[in-house]
Design a protein around this nucleic acid. Structure first.
Lengths: 190, 190
DNA sequence: GCTATACGAATGAACGTTCGTTTGTAAAGA
DNA sequence: TCTTTACAAACGAACGTTCATTCGTATAGC
C-alpha cells in the first residue's frame, strides 16, 4: 500500500492534529489544511468528527487488550509478564505516538455509549494488570506492595514516552525498555 | 473568610469544570450554571476565560517551584530530597485535585507569552529534579540509572493520584506516600 | 431622618466569529 | 451509465465577549 487513500490520510492527520491541539481545539478546517481536502469533502469518507476519535480510541484499546492476551498466553511467570507489559506500552507509544496520545488524553470527549465501552475495556485491562501484580506477590516474586497503588504507579509511569521519544535520540528502543524495566522492578536505590 | 467572594467561586468552579470536561469543552455558560451568575456577570470580576486558566496554571507552578526550593534548603541528602519531592507531588494532588489536573493537562491551551513562561518554569523544575537524581548517583545513594529516564518515569508516575484519591478511600495520605516512595525507591521485585 | 450621590455587582440582549455539518452540483472513474 | 469524489455555499448552533442598563447598598450632605 504505497499510496494512501484519502480516508487513511484523514485519520492519520487527525491523530497528529488532536495530539498537538487536543480534540476539542482541533477544527475540521484545521484538519482540512493538513489533509489537502476541503472540510465538506471529509463527509464522503467519514460520518462525523467524533467517528475519528472513536476509531483512534478503539484501535488503541484493542492493541493493549490483544497485547495483554498474548502476554498471558506466552508466560505464567509474573515477573516475565510484568516486563512484557512494560515493553508493550513502550512499543505502542513509539510505534504510533500520535494515536497513543489521543488514546491517553482525549477519550473523555467520547459520547455515549462509546465512552462507557471505552471505560469498560480500560477497567478490564487494569484488572488483568493488577492480577499479574497480585500473583507475583502471592508467589513471592514481588514484595508485599499495595496492588492498586503499584498498578497505577507503573501504568502511569509509562505515559511520558510518546512525548519524549524522538527518532533522533541516541538511545535505542531496546535500551529504553531495559532501563525502564530495571527502574520499575528494582527502584532507584542502590 | 467564611463567605466566598464571587471571584473566588468563579476560579474554584472553573477548576472543577475544566477538570471534568477540559478547558476547551467548558463554556462560560457551563460555568455560569455552577457559579450561579450569568456569563456576562463574570466580566465584572475577570478579564477573560483564559485568565482563569492562566491563574490556575501559574498558581500550581508556583506550588511546585516553592516546594522544590524548600526541599533543597531542608536537606542535602539525595534520598531524603527524592522522598520529599514525591511527598510534595502527592500532597498537592490531594489538597487540590481539580487545580492540579488542569495544571497537568490543560496548560497547552495557554496563549503566548503565558505558554512560553509556563514551559520555562516546568523545564527549570525538571532540571532541579534531575539534579537530585544525578547527585544521588554520584554519591552512590542511587544506582547507575539514566537520569532523564528516571526523572520522567518518577515524575509521570505521580500523575494518577488526583484522579484516584477520594476521601472515602481507607488509606491515609501518610500511608499512600509511604507506599509510593517505597515502590519508586525499591521497586516491586523482592 | 431624609435625600442625593456613587459605585460595585448582576443582567438581558446582542455582537461578530467559529463550529460541525448539509446541500446541490459538477467532474472523474468504473 | 452509474458510482464515487471533490467542492463552494450555506446552515443553525454555540462560542466568548460587549454593551447599556438596573439593582442594591453604603456614604455624604443637609
Amino acid at each position: 500500500m504505497v499510496v494512501k487513500t484519502s480516508k487513511e490520510r484523514i485519520f492519520e492527520e487527525a491523530a497528529n492534529l488532536f495530539r498537538e491541539k487536543g480534540y476539542q481545539a482541533s477544527s475540521m478546517r484545521d484538519l482540512s489544511d493538513r489533509v489537502g481536502l476541503k472540510p465538506s469533502s471529509f463527509y464522503n469518507h467519514i460520518k462525523s468528527k467524533e467517528e475519528i476519535l472513536q476509531k483512534i480510541c478503539l484501535d488503541n484499546a484493542m492493541k493493549f487488550v490483544d497485547g495483554m492476551k498474548a502476554i498471558k498466553k506466552d508466560s505464567t511467570d509474573p515477573l516475565e509478564q510484568l516486563q512484557a507489559v512494560i515493553r508493550l506500552h513502550i512499543d505502542i507509544a513509539i510505534k504510533d505516538r500520535s494515536s497513543v496520545t489521543v488514546f491517553n488524553d482525549e477519550w473523555k470527549h467520547l459520547s455515549e455509549p462509546h465512552l462507557a465501552n471505552f471505560l469498560k475495556m480500560r477497567k478490564r485491562y487494569e484488572k488483568e494488570f493488577k492480577n499479574i501484580i497480585e500473583t507475583g506477590i502471592k508467589k513471592k516474586v514481588f514484595r508485599k506492595v499495595n496492588p492498586a497503588i503499584a498498578l497505577f504507579t507503573i501504568l502511569t509511569s509509562l505515559k511520558w514516552i510518546h512525548y519524549w521519544h524522538k527518532p533522533k535520540r541516541k538511545i535505542s528502543v531496546k535500551d529504553l525498555e531495559k532501563d525502564i524495566i530495571n527502574l520499575l522492578v528494582n527502584g532507584v536505590s542502590s
